[in-house]
Every structure is written in C-alpha cells, then in structure tokens.
C-alpha cells in the first residue's frame, strides 16, 4: 500500500466510522461477558474502544508515516498493517481502563472486539475497498480528489462518528 499522510488519516477515519462501527454494533451484544455485566456495558466497552482506536490512530498514523520515510519504496506493506495491531492495542486497553468503562472479567470481550475489527478493516484495505472507491488505491488512500468522493467521505465519516458518540452518551 502506498499511502500519503492524508490518505492514512482519511482511510482510518472513514473505515472505522463506517465498517468498524457497523461491525461493533453487530457483535457487541453477542461477545462473551460475565453474567453480571449487562448488555449496555458491553456496548460501552466496544464503542469506547472504537472511538479511542480512531482518535489515538491519528497519532499512530503520524508515526507510521515517519517510519515509512525510511523505506525506499515509501510504502507500507500489508503485513505491517496487520502487525501494528500489536502496538496499538496496548494504549487502547489503557485508555479504556482509564475511562473506567471496563468491568472485571471483560478482557476477552475487549480482545475479541479489537482483533476482529482490526482484521476486518485490514482485509478491506487489501482490495475490496476499491470496488466502491476505484480511485482510492491510485490516490495514496485518499478519497477526496473528486467532489463526489469527498462528499461520500465526509458524510460517512461524520455520520459514523456522530452515531458512535451519541450511542456512547446514551448508554454511559
């Protein structure tokens, strides 16, 4: 993948706020949790970690972009995109604990949600994203060159983020 910095940020925001959010909503209720933890608490954990993953991701993308400068091809091989999950999971875990939304015994729930969301988004960037955005791979991961694409990006990312935050607020 040959990402520009703008492409990295846009891709992270758009995918986490669309597919990532849908996936989170779809699986939160069925993830394994202790019997005394209500379903809305599960939603609180998964939604909070999704939002944290997006926000901290902006910082991580800056780091990855700097590291990318050391590569001759100025690219980011797919395997890197998968393995960086190991680096990113730690601060997300700390943040979710610091937000005090993680009851005891919910580590597995957190881990399954984080891993599956990450892999899903990684698989989508490997190719399927081009089916709906054929220019994406030619534009360094950016959506915004043509007005039509920019509108879709804007609507998807903002709607997704707003839905996530409202849901989170409602069940806090």
């Amino acid at each position: 993948m040959t990402m520009t910095l703008g492409g990295r940020l846009q891709t992270r925001l758009v995918l986490l706020s669309s597919i990532g959010l849908l996936w989170t909503i779809a699986i939160s209720a069925v993830l394994p949790r202790p019997w005394d933890v209500p379903v809305h608490a599960a939603f609180r954990i998964t939604l909070a970690s999704s939002v944290v993953m997006t926000i901290l991701g902006f910082f991580w993308e800056l780091v990855y972009h700097a590291l990318q400068q050391l590569r001759w091809d100025k690219d980011w091989p797919p395997l890197f995109g998968l393995l960086t999950a190991i680096v990113e999971v730690v601060p997300v875990w700390w943040s979710v604990r610091a937000l005090n939304v993680l009851p005891n015994g919910c580590a597995l729930l957190f881990a399954i949600h984080f891993t599956t969301t990450w892999i899903l988004i990684w698989l989508i960037t490997l190719g399927p994203i081009s089916i709906v955005q054929p220019r994406w791979r030619f534009e360094g991961g950016e959506f915004s060159r043509r007005p039509g694409d920019a509108l879709v990006t804007f609507v998807v990312s903002n709607t997704g983020m707003v839905i996530a935050l409202v849901l989170l607020w409602a069940i806090w």
């Binding site: 040959t2 990402m3 520009t4 910095l5 492409g7 990318q68 001759w72 091809d73 100025k74 690219d75 791979r137 030619f138 534009e139 360094g140």
Partner: peptide
C-alpha cells in the same frame, strides 16, 4: 535493486504527490 521499475509510491503515493 528495487522490487519494481520505480519505487511503489511513485505510482500512487507520496512520490506521485
């Protein structure tokens, strides 16, 4: 040596920009 005839980013990444 390089994997392709130009660095990959010349095809759609930061070098192209």
């Amino acid at each position: 040596y390089q994997p392709f005839n130009f660095p990959r980013a010349a095809g759609g990444g930061q070098l192209r920009r």
